[in-house]
């Protein structure tokens, strides 16, 4: 396809089109470099020794590549009085994010399925209220949520943080799935009902297989939200259950004396890696899912 279009373009008006195309690439290249600059600095700094950072240039390549900073960041850097590095907190974040994403996505899919395909009295009001939940600032829910977690006996625990993220994410996940399912003709549900399928059967056999693009969108969205969250993490955790974002903050802020920039940079990259990975793996589905309005069939 691409070859074919290039071919016809060249046939039409070779020089002008090529110049235009190259101009475009150069522009894009400049922007890409501009946006990649901070990451480049982070990466090179993390691979330098402290001496080299102090003597050298910010954007120069490391004279001697060393992974010491990475090792320290991963398993030796101090957060307050403990010196275990990012590792335990990284796993905390995994333990929070994976169930949090899975549960909020599944519940969002079910909610969206109900408000779009099983209309009941007040369905629209409930949906509007859930939508309202998307726009409540984090700060407003902090105190009530702390109280609820306390009453439930899961304050300061990982299940507590999962609970918070699921609740806060439901508004968004419901919105995503509802908007996706609303474009699916209601006749599909009717046909399945006549075929004898029930509520969950229809969801499982017909709606979920249709939902891959929107599931990808929701998973990326929720994973990014939960992984990058700092406020809930710092408010509702205690020593031992803190997520990676809180640990990163502590590492950067609790060094005494010399600032270990290379360790800080390595820690920051470690904290950002999973979201980066999710985008790289599923990014193209993200764009496709956001624009997928209609369902073929």
């Amino acid at each position: 396809m691409a070859d074919y279009s290039m071919h016809t373009v060249q046939n039409n008006n070779p020089i002008g089109k090529i110049a235009l195309r190259w101009g475009l690439y150069v522009m894009l290249g400049i922007f890409a470099v501009f946006y990649l600059m901070p990451f480049f600095v982070m990466l090179t700094t993390s691979l330098k020794s402290l001496d080299e950072i102090r003597t050298g240039d910010l954007i120069s390549l490391p004279r001697e590549v060393t992974l010491d900073a990475w090792r320290t960041a991963w398993s030796g850097a101090c957060t307050g009085i403990q010196c275990e590095g990012m590792r335990p907190y990284f796993w905390n974040s995994m333990l929070i994010a994976i169930p949090g994403v899975a549960i909020s996505t599944l519940l969002g899919a079910l909610n969206g399925y109900v408000v779009s395909q099983w209309k009941f009295r007040g369905a629209n009001i409930i949906f509007s209220l859930m939508l309202f939940g998307c726009f409540i600032p984090f700060q407003v829910v902090l105190l009530p949520m702390a109280r609820v977690l306390g009453m439930m006996g899961i304050a300061g625990t990982i299940p507590g943080l999962i609970f918070v993220h699921v609740i806060y994410g439901l508004g968004f996940t419901t919105l995503f799935f509802r908007n996706y399912y609303v474009s699916i003709p209601s006749e599909l549900t009717k046909a399945a009902k006549v075929d004898g399928a029930g509520f969950f059967r229809i969801f499982w056999s017909i709606f979920l297989p249709l939902s891959i693009p929107i599931i990808v969108v929701t998973v990326i969205w929720q994973f990014t939200q939960i992984w990058n969250d700092f406020l809930f993490g710092v408010s509702f955790s205690q020593a031992g259950t803190q997520p990676v974002t809180v640990a990163l903050n502590n590492i950067v802020n609790s060094t005494t004396g010399v600032k270990e920039y290379n360790v800080d940079m390595a820690a920051a990259i470690i904290a950002a890696l999973p979201t980066l990975l999710v985008y790289v793996v599923a990014g193209k589905y993200f764009v496709r899912g956001l624009t997928a309005g209609s369902v073929k069939g």
């Binding site: 003709p185 006749e187 599909l188 017909i206 297989p209 369902v295």
Partner: peptide
């Protein structure tokens, strides 16, 4: 009963 719909309502997947 069996029903045939205007949009056919075939299961797309």
């Amino acid at each position: 009963i069996a029903m045939v719909f205007q949009s056919y309502a075939l299961y797309p997947t």
